[in-house]
């Protein structure tokens, strides 16, 4: 299997666009989380005085809405791929969930073979999407429709907002946990991961990549998993699945 010299024995997991989107979304999420936390936790309440935290929270909220929106417009294929991947589970995925405790404890070996996203990642993404929707809707309601909500409506919206954020924060902790345990940070910083790691954790994906690479090599003589080829491949993936 051929690679470029720069990324020898590595495989490109996330393209630049995706990484930028992730970074922006992560930033706005952290801003929202921290500026929200000052309202959630009384000892931090003084940080909200004067309304600065609210202003920043609202700027963060705009980012949190704008980034996915921009991604949808600028990289429709990638976004569609992400949604498809997150909501489709095969037999291996079910098996993976059954033995998930092993993966949780750091044991990737003997886990059922996984695609580009493992079953946990899929579920994480799906949950983030759904819960983000509730946090956004409840947040916008509190921002723009306070008078219409009334006292109970406001409190209910706040409860939904808080619980949604609780869920997202717990997801975040899990997200960071697996990133740490499986040394996965480079996928989002450089975009490249060790091929060995990928083969261990995402063997089905690597198999697909190998098959693609062979086909491409036969057809056009291209010799690396570069961004173009990967995009082509994902297109094919979709056509197969669709």
């Amino acid at each position: 299997m051929a690679t470029t010299v720069e990324h020898e024995h590595q495989v490109l997991r996330y393209r630049t666009k995706q990484r930028i989107v992730h970074a922006l979304l992560a930033t706005s999420f952290v801003v929202l989380l921290l500026t929200g936390l000052v309202l959630l936790w009384d000892p931090l309440g003084w940080l909200a005085a004067g309304g600065w935290s609210r202003l920043i929270h609202r700027i963060g909220a705009i980012g949190f809405l704008a980034v996915p929106a921009a991604y949808l417009i600028l990289d429709r294929k990638g976004a569609r791929e992400l949604v498809y991947d997150s909501f489709r589970y095969d037999r291996d995925d079910i098996e993976w969930f059954k033995t998930m405790y092993r993966y949780f404890l750091g044991h990737a070996v003997e886990m059922p073979p996984q695609g580009r996203l493992n079953a946990g990642q899929k579920l994480h993404h799906a949950a983030v999407m759904l819960v983000s929707a509730t946090v956004v809707v409840s947040g916008l309601a509190m921002w723009f429709f306070k008078p219409q909500l009334g006292a109970s409506g406001l409190a209910a919206a706040a409860v939904i907002h808080d619980l949604s954020m609780l869920a997202l924060t717990l997801f975040l902790i899990g997200h960071l946990y697996f990133t740490y345990v499986y040394k996965a940070i480079s996928g989002m910083t450089t975009g490249w991961v060790e091929e060995a790691d990928a083969r261990l954790e995402h063997s089905k994906w690597m198999d697909e990549l190998d098959a693609q690479a062979e086909a491409v090599t036969v057809g056009s003589g291209a010799s690396s998993h570069d961004e173009v080829s990967q995009e082509d491949q994902s297109q094919e993936d979709q056509s197969q699945e669709g």
């Binding site: 003084w46 004067g50 309304g51 935290s53 609210r54 306070k146 008078p147 406001l154």
Partner: peptide, 10 residues
């Protein structure tokens, strides 16, 4: 100390 959240108003 007020953050201007308007929760009290509502």
């Amino acid at each position: 100390a007020c953050s201007g959240c308007e929760y009290c108003v509502t």
